[in-house]
Nucleic acid binder design. Structure first.
Lengths: 155, 155
DNA sequence: GAAATATCTATTGACATAGTAGGGTTTTGA
DNA sequence: TCAAAACCCTACTATGTCAATAGATATTTC
């Protein structure tokens, strides 16, 4: 049930872009994202390219180039990012809405495991759909004002 | 966020064992599980062996041998099975309770992504913890009495 | 036109996944 | 007692994915 490193990097990069987002055409350099988030630069390059072909970011080439969100942070959900980088959110593809595939069980329509997995899927999607990059940024700001304590989590 | 085939097979096998579970010492043959669930026999052998060393099933050797659940179906949750076969239920291990690992982000205690992932983890665990093999069996029975319609799901 | 940047294509090493293969051990029952 | 049916153990392999790394190219600005 794991997110790949690639997916995690994508989220972290998008978070930076959301944070620096402005209405004008300002962009953020790969280098900067890479340094802020400890992500290997060349690898990040590929990931941002993926996000670009997914229509989530746009790039500007040349000396003052870089990346920016294609839409406002409020209009990009985490689920959209993960789906493009990782594929299905569902634990088994026989319960996936966007990437459905038949499974090998004897009778899918009466499979109890499938029905539980559908519950799992729905609860994952519920969290990831409702959380936008803007929410993420707000949450980050709230966390920054917390006292520094490794045992504190905001849930 | 995917479950491996191995994990899926483990659930399907355990479901069969739960279904055939009796208080006496009766066992189910690998062959039978394999046929019922379309699982390659030799592969299933390995998986059941894993489940055995995890203390979830016991085996009986010899000509009338096979496997049975070590505990009652009510006392085995899906989360326990998956954790033994797959490892962490959490999407990133920096939010895992049982398999925690530090991640590469600049400040874990103030990481907004982490806090969202913790929500995701909790909602996955909530479903998988509360669902036992007995629940699964009951659900299977309910599904069997449903009319045959591929668009019907019980949620 | 030089420098800084992004872009594209290919390759790689490590690891995991999903099996397959071959033999070995235990138990039963004819 | 011996063979068959079951589980047990170790190893192997083909395939694919992951996480980069590398090299060359294109674009923009100063």
């Amino acid at each position: 049930m794991r997110l790949s490193v690639r997916g995690e990097y994508a989220l972290r990069a998008m978070q930076v872009l959301a944070r620096d987002y402005q209405e004008d055409d300002s962009v953020v350099r790969i280098q900067e994202i890479s340094e802020k988030q400890n992500i290997p630069k060349r690898f990040l390059e590929q990931i941002l390219n993926d996000l670009k072909s997914a229509g989530l970011v746009v790039s500007k080439r040349g000396v003052a180039g870089g990346y920016r969100l294609k839409r406002k942070p409020e209009q990009i959900s985490l689920s959209e990012i993960i789906r493009h980088i990782e594929g299905p959110l569902a634990p088994v593809s026989c319960v996936s809405e966007k990437f459905y595939e038949k499974c090998s069980c004897p009778d899918e329509s009466r499979c109890a495991i499938r029905s539980v997995m559908k519950e799992v899927r729905d609860s994952i999607v519920q969290v990831m759909d409702k959380t936008s990059l803007a929410d993420l940024a707000a949450r980050a700001q709230a966390l920054e004002q917390q006292p520094l304590n490794p045992y504190d989590f905001i849930i």
